[in-house]
Design a protein around this nucleic acid. Structure first.
Lengths: 302, 302
DNA sequence: ATGAGGCCATAAACTGAATTTATGAGCAGG
DNA sequence: CCTGCTCATAAATTCAGTTTATGGCCTCAT
């Protein structure tokens, strides 16, 4: 039952990617700092547990089989997720003495920041980053007190005393399980109907909840929630299992929408957009590493 | 340097998710079939290597710390990628005697199929699936010869002798590295300019190349390629490192676009869309597991 | 209050898997 | 025909994760 027994470990997946890239077991082994027999043995172990030949070995190198190409592509996605984990974890560990101290809202820290950190590392290696995640008020305070060099918040406007630039546009999405009646609607749901429908929501006080409250105030205000849950994950899980419609940041549900575990329900007459902003103390322009990071996050025309 | 030493293994990540969900080390251990001290030790090891406390332990259970929530969310993405890997790998191993034999083009097998398989497993557990990946001609042949119950191809029209339904709309995307002049263009690139620009492409004969050839035939035809590479991955890598513009399926570059390693360049006057189709022998309607899978893949209005 | 039952931590022995060292065999190219 | 690359095999070693066994802490119910 546990996944870990059926999926090769990260080291083996990384090795497979190196073999694919370098075309040789031995070269891949050298790159990863292990010996060639170890690499040979790991690849072989992988092939036996998967039941598929992955590489064609020859006296002048190894190339992937057709199945190997596919497996390698799937492996790449696992390794990329692990890289994002690593980038985030390093920032979380890095503390006060870091060259770049970042404070970010949960949503941004969770979905966007790891990617930025990977890009930052690629472009300016050696930048030590520390991350503090929390709500908008915490981010604002850290930046104002110069405990953070750069902050990231989602919200309609920037907190007092802070300059900001919009780096992306987020959007709240109404989503339901595929079996829900709204999943088959052709026309958008009127905001008033959304307002009077019991929803699966985060608890009062979350940023998402506040935006939703404001957007539906003109349409009669939010009905009593169907469920009030403490985390984005719990809200998603409830909605996927059919509890009812949920409202979450687009960033939080892209995967579920792509995998059709949730279906987006268009809404009419309500503005559910919100800006994602980088913020810094008014007066001081971001410089050094903060400026580098900012340049990576600027949203293009999309 | 190797990633595997800094990122906890999949078992530990899975354990962390179970702890988050169940609120207890012991309960999580039971679910994963290990003993409580083992779970305690793994979580502790994780905390020391990450340098961050992840769970608040108490005599009546364990809850995640603020950092723990973030780490768990990042871990979830790794585990989800591993689940996709597992689903794909199982289908690759499953052979002739499977209840559902699928043939799919590389792009679909790589990006879409694992998600479908996970959904299929969730909704109809115990369906044994076998997967054969290859080009359109191979998929068509397997389906015609009843070696596969269902096929998935990308292309303008369905192969002869096969019925089909469009399950999604794919699109070829022109993308460049952020430093490329086209990345800062405000106006779309005219098709004629694209046609006379040397591009980074897959080798002649690939589906992507064929669609591009057809689309640009009316605009002077493709210029000699800047680079001709054998795999989608190689094309992406070349484009990311600034070799020049590449043209790839939208599915292949969503991650790079989201992480701003590549920038999409809009193109005027050229139709770069193509349908993704499920195909089956004319006459026989998909039934049983094939029908179940088909129902999962039908594209909604998006 | 006091015992029962949940939770987690610690210690020591065990097990097994991954690794290294050492070696051999096949193929290309000077 | 030797040199240098490739990968495979075998045996010894090392190390990490696990289990078994125990103890402490807290809450709840008697």
């Amino acid at each position: 039952m546990p996944l870990a027994h059926r999926v090769p470990d990260l080291g083996a997946l990384e090795l497979l990617l190196a073999v694919a890239r370098l075309g040789s077991l031995g070269a891949a082994a050298r790159e990863l700092g292990i010996t060639q027999p170890a690499a040979s043995s790991r690849i072989r172990a992988m092939e036996t547990t998967l039941g598929v030949a992955l590489v064609d070995r020859s006296p002048r190198g190894s190339t992937l089989t057709a199945e190997g190409v596919l497996v390698t592509d799937w492996a790449r996605r696992v390794v990329e997720a692990a890289e994002a984990f690593d980038a985030g974890a390093q920032a979380l560990r890095g503390r006060r003495d870091s060259r770049l101290r970042v404070a970010a809202s949960m949503t941004i820290a969770e979905y966007l920041l790891p990617g930025w950190l990977i890009a930052l590392r690629a472009q300016w290696p050696g930048t030590a980053v520390s991350l503090q995640a929390g709500n908008s008020a915490l981010v604002a305070r850290r930046v104002l007190e110069h405990e953070a060099d750069l902050g990231f918040v989602e919200g309609v406007s920037a907190p007092d005393g802070l300059s900001s630039t919009v780096i992306a546009q987020d959007r709240l999405v109404v989503a339901v399980a595929p079996g829900h009646p709204w999943a088959r609607r052709r026309s958008p749901v009127p905001a008033a109907e959304l307002a009077r429908t019991p929803l699966v929501l985060r608890e009062r006080g979350s940023g998402t909840r506040q935006v939703l409250d404001a957007a539906l105030a003109a349409h009669g205000g939010l009905a009593a929630p169907l469920l009030e849950l403490a985390s984005t994950t719990a809200v998603k899980a409830a909605a996927v299992s059919g509890a009812g419609p949920c409202v979450l940041s687009e960033l939080a549900v892209v995967d579920e929408l792509a995998g059709r575990r949730l279906i987006e329900v268009p809404v009419a007459d309500a503005v559910l957009g919100r800006a994602l902003r980088a913020v810094w103390p008014t007066g001081t322009r971001p410089a050094g590493p903060a400026r580098d990071l900012l340049s990576l996050t600027r949203a293009p025309a999309r």
